[in-house]
Amino acid sequence: MNTSDKKIMIIDHDDMTIEILKFILKREGYKISIAKDGINAVVRIPTIMPDLVITNIIIPLKSGLEIISYIKQNFKDIRVVALSALGEEENTVEEAFELGVDDFIAKPFNPNELLLRIKRFL
């Protein structure tokens, strides 16, 4: 399976982050879908069935932690990378890993590092 077969969902309310991620990931050949809030993400995940989800921790309507929990309870094969400016807050990072997040990346992130981590899962 090459990268063009892989689907990644980005869940974030920040347009700049979305545009940066779209640019990086599309250039690598991934199929991208976007959700700007937690409710939209929960509704769309079962129909899109992404291979990987990149979610911010702080998003409207449902938190990134709630999204991680939802995915890990219902879709064991979907990998989840949490992205947050809260990288230095240990409790949030700890909780994300307790819920089953596959990786955690602090903002601002290095695009090459992000890609390497994604490729490791896909």
Rank of each mutant, 00 (worst) to 15 (best):
M1D: 01
M1C: 02
M1Q: 03
N2A: 04
N2I: 07
T3K: 14
T3N: 15
S4I: 11
S4F: 14
K6H: 00
K6P: 01
K6T: 01
K6G: 02
M9G: 03
I10Q: 01
I11L: 12
D12K: 10
H13N: 15
H13W: 13
H13R: 13
D14F: 09
M16H: 14
T17M: 15
T17C: 13
I18S: 07
L21S: 09
L21P: 10
K22Y: 11
K22E: 15
F23M: 14
F23W: 13
F23G: 11
K26I: 05
R27C: 06
E28F: 03
E28V: 03
G29Y: 06
Y30R: 05
K31F: 06
I32M: 02
S33L: 11
S33W: 08
I34C: 09
I34F: 10
A35W: 00
D37R: 02
D37E: 10
G38H: 09
G38M: 11
I39A: 13
N40I: 12
N40R: 12
A41P: 07
A41S: 10
V42N: 06
R44C: 13
P46L: 07
P46V: 08
P46N: 08
T47F: 13
M49G: 02
P50N: 02
D51W: 03
L52D: 00
V53N: 00
I54R: 07
N56C: 05
I58A: 11
I59S: 07
P60F: 11
L61N: 14
K62Q: 09
S63E: 04
S63D: 05
S63Y: 01
L65W: 05
L65K: 01
E66F: 04
E66M: 04
I67Y: 01
I67V: 14
I68R: 02
S69T: 03
S69V: 00
K72E: 03
K72R: 04
N74K: 04
F75I: 12
K76M: 09
D77W: 08
I78G: 00
R79P: 05
V80F: 04
A82G: 03
A82M: 05
S84D: 10
S84Y: 10
A85S: 14
A85P: 02
L86T: 04
G87K: 04
G87I: 08
E88P: 04
E88Q: 13
E89Y: 12
E89I: 12
E90A: 08
E90T: 08
N91T: 09
T92W: 11
V93E: 01
E94Y: 15
E95T: 15
E95Q: 14
F97Q: 07
L99R: 08
L99C: 06
G100K: 06
G100R: 07
V101R: 08
V101T: 15
D103V: 03
D103G: 04
F104T: 02
I105T: 02
K107T: 12
F109C: 08
N110P: 03
P111C: 04
P111A: 02
P111S: 01
E113H: 10
E113M: 11
L114G: 07
L114Q: 05
L114S: 06
L114A: 06
L115Y: 02
I118T: 00
K119A: 11
R120M: 07
R120G: 07
R120K: 15
F121S: 03
L122Q: 10
L122M: 13
